[in-house]
Amino acid sequence: MTSTTPQSVDRALAILDAVADAAGPVGAKELARRVGCSLSTAYHLLGALTARGHLTRTAQGYVPGPRVPALHRGFQRHLGLAPGVGELLARLRRATGAEAYYTAYRGGLITVVDSTAPVTDTANPFTPGPEIRAHATAHGKALLAGLPRPVRRRYLDEHGMARFTDRTITAADRFEAELTRVRGQGFAVSMGEADPAYTCLAVALPGPRGDGSVHAVSVSLATGEFRKRHGAIRGAVARVAAELVPGA
């Protein structure tokens, strides 16, 4: 728990995170253990979360509730997603044979907003939600390259540049040179920098946006496949990115 967060709020959010991250329903006793509270406290918080629709109680345990999809839609609406994002990502997947993603930077955070990867594909390295490896991914590079340098430096200072593979760029000056190359060529590539088996390619979307956000579309696939078809893949991503104008 952080020093500025009321304990009950922090525990309720921790319960939500635990249920969302679980592979299946989670019982109250297990949630109490994970959160570090008494069973009676857990039941009190679970009751409030269930009443608001954030969780649902089943015979096997607690699962995400019917309010969750509305929260996601609200997030997308406030982000100003262009109409038809899901359809265009699906078209990009068909054209490239690679999973496609929509990502965005806003307010100091980078998020994978939407993806064609099945929700059951737990092996996929880029799942919807907060992106903590931006410096090692193509979509992160494309987004950071579009930010003013002071904003970009603040982001990297806050989130760091951890090494995930032997290809990960962790030096600030080398990363700045990489982003200069991204701006010059109009696309970003990460070959085994976040995951040794995958290459991803991203293109930032047309702007500008008044809220300071930057959006991008990307694909990821096995590195061997990328090497065989990188030209066609780059062209397909660029064509979809040209059609995805946030807030249009």
Rank of each mutant, 00 (worst) to 15 (best):
L205N: 14
A32Y: 01
P206W: 05
D173I: 11
E176Y: 07
A248M: 08
N124A: 13
T41M: 06
L49E: 06
S190A: 15
A51K: 06
N124S: 12
K141V: 10
R153K: 12
T103E: 13
A123H: 09
T5F: 00
A177M: 14
A117C: 11
Q76E: 15
Y43Q: 10
G212K: 10
G27M: 04
P130C: 05
T56N: 06
G129S: 06
L147C: 07
G47E: 00
A14H: 01
A232S: 11
L71D: 14
C37R: 01
D173E: 15
E87S: 13
R73M: 11
M161L: 06
R94L: 13
T120S: 11
R34V: 10
A28H: 01
V240N: 05
I132V: 13
T168N: 04
D114I: 02
A204V: 14
K141D: 05
G80C: 06
D114N: 03
E176V: 12
S220I: 09
P208E: 12
T4R: 04
V237S: 02
F126D: 08
T127Y: 02
T223Y: 00
A142N: 04
A104N: 08
Y105K: 05
D211P: 04
S3G: 01
D10F: 02
H139N: 07
D166Y: 10
A28I: 00
D10A: 10
P148E: 03
I169C: 15
E225R: 14
S115I: 07
L81P: 10
L201M: 15
R163C: 13
S218W: 05
L49Q: 04
P66H: 10
S8P: 01
E131R: 09
V35D: 01
A248H: 12
F75R: 13
H135S: 15
V9P: 00
A12I: 03
A136V: 08
R106F: 08
A70N: 02
D173G: 11
G212Y: 10
A100S: 07
T127V: 14
A145D: 07
A104S: 13
R163M: 13
S40Q: 05
E30M: 01
V112T: 12
T41G: 02
H54T: 06
S213K: 05
T223N: 06
V245G: 03
R11K: 00
A59S: 11
S8K: 04
P128F: 01
